[in-house]
Simulated assay, not measured.
Amino acid sequence: MLSVTPVYAALLAILFIALSVRVISQRRSDKISYGDGGNTTMLKVMRTHSNFVEYTPFAVLLIAMVELQGASGLLLNLLGLTLLSGRLLHAYGFGRSPQIVILRQIGMLLTFAAILVAAIANLVLAL
């Protein structure tokens, strides 16, 4: 049974909703119903949201599989905190104008670290 992964999945879902609301608000503000309308602010808000969507589900799935294989709570919490921190830092750093490049970079590094460590843990636990 999963008990750690759902906590991080829920926190990440809240961040997803916040990023979604930013997209909706920007669309309403700029009266853009489809695409980015050639508006760079709209494009930035959309890409911040899209980047989250591109990486987070796969990472959460990997962490859930690690948990289902009986990994320690310490490893699971480290993976969850690394992913959550990475996604928060990336969204904040990339979503700012001008962007805060170092936060964006650290955010991606942490996201990749969570995915890579979870992938390796899955292989080790499965074999």
Rank of each mutant, 00 (worst) to 15 (best):
residue 85 S to Q: 06
residue 85 S to D: 04
residue 85 S to N: 06
residue 85 S to A: 15
residue 85 S to F: 13
residue 85 S to R: 08
residue 85 S to C: 14
residue 85 S to L: 15
residue 85 S to W: 07
residue 87 R to K: 14
residue 87 R to F: 07
residue 87 R to Q: 08
residue 87 R to P: 01
residue 88 L to R: 03
residue 88 L to F: 12
residue 88 L to M: 13
residue 88 L to N: 01
residue 88 L to A: 07
residue 88 L to T: 12
residue 89 L to C: 12
residue 89 L to E: 07
residue 90 H to V: 03
residue 90 H to K: 00
residue 90 H to L: 07
residue 90 H to P: 00
residue 90 H to F: 15
residue 90 H to E: 00
residue 90 H to R: 02
residue 90 H to Q: 10
residue 91 A to R: 05
residue 91 A to P: 04
residue 92 Y to P: 10
residue 92 Y to G: 09
residue 92 Y to K: 14
residue 92 Y to C: 12
residue 92 Y to F: 15
residue 92 Y to L: 14
residue 93 G to N: 04
residue 93 G to C: 07
residue 93 G to M: 08
residue 93 G to Y: 00
residue 93 G to L: 07
residue 94 F to G: 09
residue 94 F to A: 10
residue 94 F to N: 03
residue 94 F to H: 09
residue 94 F to E: 13
residue 94 F to T: 08
residue 94 F to Q: 10
residue 94 F to V: 11
residue 95 G to Q: 05
residue 95 G to D: 02
residue 95 G to F: 10
residue 95 G to E: 03
residue 96 R to Y: 09
residue 97 S to I: 13
residue 98 P to R: 08
residue 98 P to I: 03
residue 98 P to L: 06
residue 98 P to S: 09
residue 98 P to W: 11
residue 99 Q to A: 15
residue 99 Q to C: 10
residue 99 Q to T: 10
residue 99 Q to K: 13
residue 99 Q to V: 04
residue 99 Q to I: 04
residue 100 I to C: 12
residue 100 I to L: 15
residue 100 I to G: 06
residue 100 I to H: 11
residue 100 I to A: 13
residue 101 V to E: 07
residue 101 V to T: 12
residue 102 I to Y: 14
residue 102 I to S: 15
residue 102 I to P: 08
residue 102 I to V: 13
residue 103 L to K: 03
residue 103 L to D: 02
residue 103 L to H: 04
residue 103 L to Q: 04
residue 104 R to N: 05
residue 104 R to L: 05
residue 104 R to Q: 10
residue 104 R to H: 08
residue 104 R to K: 11
residue 104 R to P: 01
residue 104 R to S: 05
residue 105 Q to I: 04
residue 105 Q to C: 02
residue 105 Q to T: 06
residue 105 Q to F: 09
residue 106 I to C: 10
residue 106 I to A: 13
residue 107 G to I: 08
residue 107 G to A: 05
residue 107 G to Y: 03
residue 108 M to V: 09
residue 108 M to R: 06
residue 108 M to G: 02
residue 109 L to C: 13
residue 109 L to Y: 12
residue 109 L to W: 13
residue 110 L to Y: 00
residue 110 L to G: 01
residue 110 L to N: 01
residue 110 L to C: 04
residue 110 L to V: 03
residue 110 L to Q: 01
residue 111 T to R: 02
residue 111 T to N: 11
residue 111 T to M: 09
residue 111 T to D: 03
residue 112 F to I: 12
residue 112 F to G: 00
residue 112 F to T: 00
residue 112 F to E: 00
residue 113 A to K: 11
residue 113 A to D: 05
residue 115 I to T: 02
residue 115 I to R: 00
residue 115 I to H: 02
residue 115 I to D: 01
residue 115 I to Y: 01
residue 115 I to A: 00
residue 115 I to W: 01
residue 115 I to V: 12
